[in-house]
Every structure is written in structure tokens, then in C-alpha cells.
């Protein structure tokens, strides 16, 4: 390398590193970004099994079933007519209840059951996953319409 060009070479190296990182990031995002889907969206546009998504909706009334091992639960996430069966093994958050909002992270298995590895429920009155905040406003809108 000619010493005269050292500054140029360093600048080019930096550019290559940044562009390389950009490509790596985009490739990673294509494979790994988890989409947020509601049951109605899934009914219209199913997601292939094994792909990580976040499923958001309401826990259907009377749908939570405890398995005999005591740590697995099955429940239905619904939105209007659309329903998705979910299985979760682990400790559900304290505020995970029937007829309230939930976001589950995981993927569908081959039989169409959503296997969740994480469940997010409303944490306290100030905290909720951003997507759920939107669902909440949708509910409130619905409620207002009903009251009127």
C-alpha cells in the first residue's frame, strides 16, 4: 500500500464495514423480525409453521384449560369471529386473565396450534406492550359506541 493513500484506504475500509454491517443487518432482519398479527389477520393471511410471530388479541371467555402437569395451559385468542388455539408452558403473568388482552410470542406448529414461549399481559396500569395499547384504544372505542 502506498503510504500516500492511507487516508483514502481507511475511509474505504470504514465504508465497506458500514455497508457490510448494513447487508448483514438486512439479511438478519429478513429472517428474524417477528411480525405482529391478530387472529383476524391470520385468518385472512396464514403464517407458515415455525416462523416466529407475535400474536395479539383477547383471551376468550372460559377458554383457559390447565393440563395435568400444572404448568401447561391451553387457551383461545380471539378477535371477533377469528379464533386461534394457543398452548403455553411456563409461568403465566399475574395479570393474564380471560376476557383481557394478551400478546403471545412463538410460532405455529404443523397442526395449527400456536406454541407460545412467552406471554405478555398488561403489567400494571402504566405498562403494556405497545401493540396492546392500540388494542386497548380499539376496545375503548367499541365501548363508547355501545354506551351511546
Amino acid at each position: 500500500m502506498k503510504p500516500k493513500n492511507q487516508r483514502l484506504v481507511l475511509a474505504l475500509l470504514a465504508l465497506v464495514a458500514i455497508i457490510g454491517a448494513g447487508f448483514l443487518a438486512l439479511a438478519g432482519l429478513r429472517d428474524n423480525a417477528a411480525l405482529f398479527r391478530t387472529p383476524a389477520e391470520l385468518a385472512a393471511n396464514p403464517v407458515e409453521p415455525g416462523r416466529d410471530i407475535r400474536l395479539g388479541g383477547m383471551v376468550a371467555a372460559n377458554s383457559i384449560r390447565e393440563a395435568s402437569d400444572g404448568v401447561t395451559i391451553d387457551f383461545i385468542v380471539e378477535e371477533g369471529e377469528a379464533r386461534v388455539p394457543v398452548r403455553f408452558t411456563g409461568i403465566a403473568p399475574d395479570l393474564f386473565r380471560e376476557s383481557s388482552g394478551v400478546v403471545a410470542e412463538g410460532a405455529f406448529d404443523r397442526r395449527g396450534t400456536f406454541i407460545a414461549h412467552t406471554i405478555l399481559a398488561k403489567h400494571d396500569e402504566n405498562y403494556m406492550p405497545p401493540q396492546m395499547a392500540d388494542m386497548e384504544t380499539r376496545d375503548e372505542r367499541l365501548q363508547r359506541t355501545l354506551e351511546r
Binding site: 438478519g28 432482519l29 429472517d31 428474524n32 423480525a33 417477528a34 411480525l35 405482529f36 416466529d52 407475535r54 410470542e105 405497545p130 401493540q131
Partner: peptide, 9 residues
């Protein structure tokens, strides 16, 4: 569109 990027990425 809402999505999340987590540990796998």
C-alpha cells in the same frame, strides 16, 4: 406494520 426484532436477529 408492527413487528419486533429480538434475540435471534
Amino acid at each position: 406494520e408492527k413487528l419486533s426484532v429480538g434475540p435471534p436477529y
